[in-house]
Simulated assay, not measured.
Amino acid sequence: MLDKHLHILGVRGIPAQHGGFETFAEKLSLFLLAQGWQVTVYCQEEGNGPTWESTWQGVRRIHIPIGYSGAAATVIFDWKATWCALSERGLFLTLGYNTAIFNLLQRLVGQVNIINMDGIEWRRDKWGGIAKIWFWLNERAGCWIGNHLIADHPKIKEHLATRVRTDKISMIPYGGDEVTNAEVDLLAPYTIEPGHFSVIIARPEPENSVLEMVRAFSQTRRNHKLVVLGNFKPESNSFHRQVMISASDEVLFPGAIYEASIVQALRFFSRFYLHGHRVGGTNPSLVEALGAGCAVIAQDNHFNRWVAGSEAAYFKDESACAGLFDRLLHDDATVEHMKTASRARFQERFTWPQVLHEYEELLTRWYPSK
């Protein structure tokens, strides 16, 4: 067979700077290069002008300038990237279905496109009615247009199986890096010490239970810190303002932190990692918490339970979350057991070598013969 060539659509670009899909695209690209593949990634750039190319660690990057911002920029970029890809040969992997209707062009010209269907975007509280309709329609379009679908969680596969036949869907979760040590000095700017703080790492949105977790922690004096990462704008966002008003003086809001070494240190040295996500499949931040050996306290739903496993602690509401703090904050034996169980669950299903080998097997199986 000639050299295999994969084109990755649906991300802002690599190296990763924006989130889980970008991290995955970077990991998969470098892994496939080592296996003899050629890889092209379509990258969104700010501004105007012609498309241009570059190479990053052997990965071909096609840069597409977009003179807009926000959601409109993403839609326009996806349209231009899909159009640009129509002249290419090989196999295509689209990460996310938010503009899946555009992938109809690829189907019409006979390109083979595998779509990672991500979470159930139209169920998220943050979207208004028009956006929810758009995502619902594109989820349906992606199910029909994609040659094959990837679900990152068994429950996402079950959901997609209500739209298409089961054999059109493969379940491969998100992966993460194991963290076995971190730089303790990175905690100094936040005046926190190992084991004497817990951490929340999430977008500050209602569906992520941030308000419930902050209120639960703040019900009484804990002699413990809660570090809440996220881009809070209380002056313009009423929910952000509500969260910050509800917080005791033991809750810290350092803002959004993107330096991986600092985030790793916050996970690694935390007493608990709190995960309040109610919607979605395999959440990258939760996987990374398992890889750092965190004791996990999570919102009780079937998405989180499958990822974090039976030894994590779960809460249904604010009162139950407060009860977990009351019971576990000073229970060293249980916390150590939870940390050990997190590492075991991570090794069982979420290491990058496992995930990337499964992707390569699937991509090889679907690679076009012509």
Rank of each mutant, 00 (worst) to 15 (best):
D249P: 08
P15V: 05
T364Q: 15
T51Q: 14
P189L: 06
V75C: 05
A188V: 08
E193M: 12
E183F: 04
I201W: 07
K339D: 02
E178W: 01
T94E: 15
M338I: 00
P194Q: 08
K132N: 08
F102Y: 15
E205A: 14
V109T: 10
S369I: 11
V307R: 04
D331F: 08
T23W: 00
I14F: 14
S248I: 05
M117F: 09
L9P: 03
I130Y: 14
G176M: 01
D332Q: 08
A34M: 13
S236L: 14
G13T: 07
I262L: 08
A85R: 11
C84G: 15
A100I: 12
Q264H: 14
V279S: 06
V59R: 05
V263E: 05
R271Y: 02
P368E: 01
E336R: 06
K27M: 07
H337V: 05
I115D: 06
H7I: 04
S285M: 14
A341I: 10
E158Q: 15
I76T: 10
F253L: 10
F325E: 00
A312K: 00
S369P: 06
S369R: 07
A85D: 06
N237A: 07
G67L: 03
N116A: 13
A333R: 09
F269P: 06
N138L: 03
R305P: 13
E46H: 10
A16G: 10
